[in-house]
Amino acid sequence: MSYSGPGPEPSHPRRSPLRRPLTVAVAALAAGGLLGWGVYAAVGGGDEGRAASAAPSGGAASPDDDAKRPAGSSPSPGTKSPSPSASGPLKGKVVVIDPGHNPGNFQHASEINRQVDIGTHRKECDTTGTATNAGWPEAEFTLDVAHRLRTLLQEQGATVKLTQDGDRPYGPCVDERARIGNEARADAAISIHADGSGAGNRGFHVILPGAVHGGGADTRPIVAPSAELGERVAGNFLRTTGSAPSNYLGDGTGLVTRTDLGGLNLSTVPKVFIECGNMRDDKDVALLTSGTWRQKAAQGMSEGIVSFLRG
């Protein structure tokens, strides 16, 4: 997901009195969860994953072998996903996982370029997302991590729904992605991405919905619970992966607020985006292409969601 596009966010910070800047150590995050995380309404701009320029065939690493065999993944799109555990702390809870983009979007330019209403304005149905310099697409990364996360949450008893599982030719559009979570009455929803920023820009960040009230969008009821969800995901992601918060967005907090993303604007359930790293930075790519690291990433997301849903 790249940030080169219209609609920049205000650069002034929006801080809640319940949140402080990120000054605690990883150990404190493990013990105290989210109390050390602050929210920063950083410059957003961009879209929900603007297509990167054609990726060169050389450069950064390609994903290791288990990229195509993620834990909990289906051998083929039609294979039935695992069932939730009969018992567990998340029994009765519904989680929607939104794997950003779709591997087939590249072949459906006209369909994904059509405009949809996201409340504040109109924008593309979807985009191709970015890719590593070696050509591994963001859409493959997001689906891999989504499968891993699904398995972990189902082991905790949750009912899990994916917005897409490589089982459709393109999309869904950003408005439909939000609608899937709304219609499922999800207790929590998370959209998984990787960024396409410049080399040297590193780290993860979690995107929180800002207050939007216009057109078909009204995020006001979900701003506070989404912020809590995002803080818990960010804290646990840092702890499990050891990855640092973004050095180019979020003022070092790993948290960014945006009002230009349809997947957040149109959501009526608590929802966040996570940008797991930068696919155009070699050091981040070494992590993103590692199956071991991706499992840690899914674990961090899972623990954050479990923490949020258990209260």
Rank of each mutant, 00 (worst) to 15 (best):
L229K: 09
E231P: 01
T268I: 07
T253W: 11
S226H: 01
D281I: 02
E228A: 12
T253E: 15
E228D: 06
L249P: 02
F237E: 10
G277K: 06
N265R: 13
P270S: 07
V256K: 10
T268K: 15
G250I: 08
S226W: 01
D251S: 13
N278C: 07
L229H: 04
N265M: 04
N265A: 04
N247I: 03
S226K: 06
Y248D: 15
A234R: 13
T259C: 00
T259N: 08
E231W: 11
G254V: 07
R239C: 11
R280P: 09
L238R: 12
I274K: 09
T240L: 15
T259M: 09
P270G: 04
L266M: 05
D260L: 08
G263S: 12
G250V: 06
T253V: 06
R280W: 10
F237P: 07
F273K: 01
L249C: 08
T240P: 04
P270I: 02
A224G: 07
G254D: 11
L229E: 00
D251K: 13
V223T: 07
D251L: 12
L238M: 13
L261G: 03
I222A: 05
V223E: 01
F273D: 02
G262K: 08
L249T: 08
R232C: 05
T259P: 00
S246Y: 11
P270K: 06
A227H: 03
L264I: 02
F237D: 09
G254L: 09
L249G: 04
R239T: 15
A224H: 04
R258G: 06
F237C: 05
D251G: 08
E231K: 13
M279S: 14
L264P: 00
M279L: 15
D282T: 15
N236R: 15
